[in-house]
Design a protein around this nucleic acid. Structure first.
Length: 366
DNA sequence: TAAGAAAACCTAATTACTTCA
DNA sequence: CGTGAAGTAATTAGGTTTTCT
């Protein structure tokens, strides 16, 4: 069961459990504020991916849990990805977990074996890879189809020049080497490693595909980018945090606007109340009408008056005149005659039968 | 079968470092 | 050159879920 809270234009609300037949009942004009509570069965995407990855049961469950969260956050999902596409080598088609052929191990080990060494700002994750199992190649490895040709970063006699070719300036190259040595000398000090543009771009691409990683994806990315799996994990955690922060800011802005709108509406209503009171004082007979039920005309969305003794024309034969609504309260109906909270229709114009007789009304008070 | 420990993962908050104006 | 703000990698604390004994 999910509880979704979305801010945005109600017409664009994309909760899966709200999409099915309910969105058209919302007010499609102006701001929307939607809360959804329902069951979701939209885990098929992750399920298919899991089958493709051959993940274990834990991964399945984790992905399902994550996917359920994504459903809630998706309606206002921000696209924080870089606009410019990440340049890729021909051999790097897609992300590792999107691989259709995950067993081309020769290419994997062949490229990763030494091509990345001069590229990363970090040490090659040999020890942790062993701990996490990344260094152990398997026939099911998904790394191979995600090959980035890091040969341009390959270290050697032309290290500096290669770094420049790859977009790394002298500072980057210097930093890379100095940090590597620092890590060697003092492993206890806290290092703030700056990811390269290429690394960040690929992580962004990965995040675009999946904002969470299963262990296999994490290891594949770490190996591909020559990062420690922990670094990839941390990057995704921070990335999710940034996304959420941005989303919160957007939500706050939207709430402010909603608040302003409601305040304005409130002022307008207060003014109307004052005017009506003044009108009642000057023309008291207007207020001696019988008990009236206000219903919304389904076609023209205007309020029609239905007194207990009044007959409507055919256009309004469907007006709700049940006992529970035969009070002086205003009942707003939709095209399906389903009552919705009138609070969602605050921006709709209000019609007072004694001020604006409805054209469909057969007997409008004069 | 129930209970508890351990592992893995997550979020949220915070720290620490880097970059830049 | 020094400095503060912003961005972000990394750490920490605490929670949840699953697995194992």
């Amino acid at each position: 069961m999910e509880l979704g809270l979305s801010l945005g234009e109600s017409s664009r609300t994309s909760f899966t459990f709200l999409d099915k037949g309910n969105t058209n009942k919302m007010n499609n004009k102006g701001f929307g504020f939607c809360m959804g509570l329902g069951l979701s069965s939209t885990l098929n995407a992750s399920e298919a991916e899991r089958k493709e990855n051959g993940g274990n049961e834990r991964e399945e469950r984790n992905e399902k849990r994550v996917s359920a969260e994504c459903i809630v956050t998706q309606p206002l999902q921000l696209d924080l990805l870089p606009l410019a596409p990440v340049p890729r080598n021909n051999s790097s088609q897609g992300l590792p977990w999107l691989s259709e052929n995950g067993n081309s191990e020769a290419g994997s080990t062949g490229q990763l074996g030494g091509s990345v060494r001069g590229f990363d700002v970090n040490m090659f994750p040999s020890t942790e890879d062993v701990e996490d199992g990344a260094a152990v190649s398997s026939p099911n490895s998904t790394v191979s189809s995600f090959q980035i040709d890091f040969n341009i970063y390959k270290s050697g006699s032309g290290n500096k020049r290669d770094s420049e070719t790859a977009g790394l300036n002298d500072v980057d190259a210097e930093r890379t080497s100095s940090r590597a040595s620092d890590d060697d000398e003092n492993g206890s000090s806290r290092k703030k490693l700056r990811l390269s543009k290429e690394q960040s771009a690929y992580l962004e691409d990965s995040f675009k595909e999946h904002n969470t990683l299963n262990p296999k994806q994490k290891l594949a990315l770490a190996k591909q980018l020559s990062l420690r799996p922990r670094q990839v994990e941390v990057w995704f955690q921070n990335r999710r945090a940034r996304t959420k922060l941005k989303q919160t800011e957007v939500d706050c802005e939207y709430l402010k606007r909603c608040c302003d709108t409601l305040n304005e509406e409130n002022r307008r209503l207060q003014k109307e109340i004052s005017e009506l009171r003044a009108l009642k004082t000057s023309h008291p007979f207007y207020m001696q009408l019988p008990a009236t039920t206000l219903t919304m005309c389904p076609s023209c969305e205007r309020v029609a008056t239905t007194t207990n003794s009044t007959t409507n024309n055919n256009h309004h034969n469907n007006s709700n005149t049940s006992a529970e609504n035969s009070t002086t309260t205003t009942t707003t109906t939709t095209n399906n005659n389903t009552p919705i909270a009138s609070a969602f229709s605050l921006t709709k114009p209000r019609f007072y039968p004694f001020v604006h007789p409805h054209p469909h009304q057969s007997a409008a008070p004069s």
